[in-house]
Amino acid sequence: MTAPRRPAGPTPDRGSARAAAWLPLLPAFLLYGVQFVLPLLIVAVMAFMTSDGTGVVRPTPTLDNFAKVLGDSYYLSLVGRSLLVALVTAITTAIIGYPIAWALARSRGVWRSLLLVAVMLPLMTSSVIRAFGWMVLFAPGTWFTTLFGGLATETTGLLYTFPGLIIAMTHMLLPMMILSLYGVIEKLEPSYEEAAATLGSGRVGRFLRIVLPLTTGGLVAGMLLVFASAASLFVTPRLIGGPKQRVLATEIYDQTIMLLNWPLASAMAVVLLVLAGLAGGVYSVMMRRVGSTR
């Protein structure tokens, strides 16, 4: 027959007992309801309101905001840049992340501890500090900036440039990709690679023919995750991208806090949600299916 079924707890029969079993979820529902669902609804509704540009919101429903975000070339360029940055970051983190993830999964001892520190430390450091570090490195005239030659500008070095932004974003999200890849590589039977080695395959060959094909699940999941996060990051685009490389997230902040154009900000937030949410949604569905085939 099938594999042994996981034992279920005794299900209470009485209606009230069954209801009581859900009681522990009450704090969760309360918190999420008030601080998550409700705010999302507010944003969704606000996106359709009209603003007269002076911080006053008139509850006349309109699609102007969306028209602006998706039609006006300035805003559209923001959407485009957000998408592009997210996509490129997903790719760069995948390429750089794989070797580390593999090394992390297969190493022991000193190497492993070193790798763990290298991956965990950035995760636990505030994004401000990480961005700050890149600001120092990207300053004009440093040895680092000179490495990049023509890509850097005279006045601001690598700051406010697209390559600079990508480097910083990659750094920001690399741990996330590594963790996702690590998860699948670790589950991979080392005997596959060992078998390939006995059949004459070198390290690169083993990677390309064995590890890569068998871990595409983790790769896709990681890329979706990085894509969703990259599209929504604020600090890095703000500090590193600056005024030349604006994205949706930074614009939302400006519209909300400085320009007080809440409907427009909300519309942008909704668009951002769609972009990031789609990726995140696909990821969740994937994870659920993967999780059930344990």
């Binding site: 705010p39 939302i252 937030a269 949410g277 949604g281």
Partner: peptide, 11 residues
């Protein structure tokens, strides 16, 4: 999964 700007904005 949801960009934090979203629900923070909503709050």
């Amino acid at each position: 999964m949801v960009p934090s700007v979203l629900f923070v904005l909503g709050v």
